[in-house]
Design a protein around this nucleic acid. Structure first.
Length: 214
DNA sequence: ATCCCGAGGG
DNA sequence: CCCTCTGGAT
């Protein structure tokens, strides 16, 4: 496992590598960010950003999304995959936010998880990026994979366990940005298929590399 | 065949 | 814990 000094060194190196551009799904309206994250399930952010401008132009308000025809929403988001469930969730969550939450995105985990299509990953991202809550850990596919390689977790792929284990070792004020930077690193260097270990400056702290796998 | 900033249901 | 939902890229 890692010492406190190791963790701080990893954090510092990630800040050096990715000083800004924390969230690549940065929409002005919180509900647009929420739906963008829903669309990003098993789909690249790049592709999400290709479909959302037209979607949010056709349905420019939460009210219009709540009243939208699900079939029409499907045509806008088809290329992101899982389009039936995603369209149903977007319209359903829009209705629930209007009916139950005064047209606002909930600011707590319990209420966020009641929204259709919102799981722990999406909820944590909203709590961190919209409400700037402390101690947020967004355990997505990149975060889970790289945290395991770095030895910050025991290697589990269970998102809830990764959340708990990272929350123990990361300073609360650093945890959210840390997770975002792991996503950037997972796309640019530590890719799932073929990690580019030769060009990775996290090697000194990487169990995966130290064991000679990379 | 495997992966992409998952969620819901059994 | 498992499975399914879906399209696109490599």
């Amino acid at each position: 496992m890692k010492t406190k000094a190791d963790v701080l060194s990893i954090i510092a190196e990630l800040k050096k590598l990715y000083p800004d551009g924390i969230c690549s799904l940065d929409y002005p309206k919180p509900y647009e960010l929420l739906f963008s994250v829903r669309l990003a399930a098993q789909c690249t952010d790049e592709r999400v950003n290709m479909v959302t401008p037209a979607l949010f132009a056709r349905f420019p308000t939460l009210e219009s999304l709540a009243e939208a025809d699900i079939g029409e929403v499907e045509t806008y988001i088809h290329s992101t995959g899982f389009f039936r469930a995603k369209a149903r969730d977007i319209v359903g969550a829009a209705r629930m936010m209007l009916d139950e939450y005064g047209g606002k995105v909930p600011d707590n985990m319990d209420d966020l998880l009641k929204l259709p299509g919102v799981g722990r990953k999406t909820a944590n991202l909203i709590l961190g990026d919209v409400y700037h809550q402390r101690g947020v850990v967004v355990a997505d596919t990149h975060c889970i994979r790289i945290s395991g390689k770095l030895g910050l977790t025991d290697g589990t792929k269970d998102p809830a366990k990764v959340e708990a284990q990272l929350r123990k070792v990361l300073p609360p004020e650093e945890s959210n940005d840390f997770c975002h930077r792991l996503v950037l690193h997972g796309r640019a260097v530590c890719m799932a298929r073929r990690p580019d270990c030769q060009n990775c400056t996290l090697r000194p702290w990487c169990d995966f590399f130290q064991k000679g796998v990379g």
